[in-house]
C-alpha cells in the first residue's frame, strides 16, 4: 500500500463503497475514526466528499439537497460548493474537501 502514499501529505486512497450504494443526487455518511465525511453522487455522476458538518451550526451535510455541485445544508439552507468547500454568498465560511475518485465501480477517498 505504501506505493500510493502521497509523500507530501501522507494521505492514501481508501476504498469506501460501490458507486450504486449512493443514489444519484444523494449523499451518505462515511465515518473514519473520529471524522465524519459526507460523500455525494452528483447529478452528472461525479463523486464529491466534504466534512459532514456545516460551519454554521454543524448541520449534517450528507442529509442536504444536492443541486449541481453545491450542497444545501439541511439545517438552515446554507449553500456550500462541493468543489471548493466554500460557503456561497451571502454567507461565508468553508468546509474541508476530500479528493474522491471512482475505479472499477468503486469509490475511493484520499484520506
Amino acid at each position: 500500500m505504501s506505493s500510493d502514499m502521497n509523500p507530501e501529505t501522507g494521505t492514501k486512497w481508501h476504498p469506501v463503497c460501490q458507486v450504486e450504494e449512493i443514489p444519484q443526487f444523494g449523499g451518505r455518511t462515511v465515518r473514519a475514526g473520529q471524522t465524519e465525511i459526507a460523500i455525494f453522487r452528483l447529478g452528472d455522476g461525479r463523486i464529491r466528499a466534504v466534512d459532514n458538518r456545516c460551519p454554521h451550526k454543524q448541520g449534517p451535510l450528507a442529509e442536504g439537497i444536492v443541486s449541481g455541485d453545491t450542497i444545501i445544508c439541511p439545517m438552515h439552507a446554507r449553500k456550500i460548493s462541493l468543489e471548493s468547500g466554500e460557503v456561497l454568498p451571502p454567507d461565508s465560511g468553508c468546509v474541508k474537501t476530500y479528493p474522491a475518485k471512482v475505479e472499477g465501480g468503486q469509490i475511493l477517498l484520499q484520506l
Binding site: 501529505t9 501522507g10 476504498p15 443514489p23 455518511t29 465515518r31 473514519a32
Partner: peptide
C-alpha cells in the same frame, strides 16, 4: 437506496483531522 440511515465505516484515521 435507504441504507443512508447507517454510516459507512472505514478503518482509517484521517490525517490532519
Amino acid at each position: 437506496e435507504f441504507k443512508e440511515y447507517t454510516a459507512i465505516e472505514i478503518p482509517v484515521q484521517v490525517v490532519n483531522a
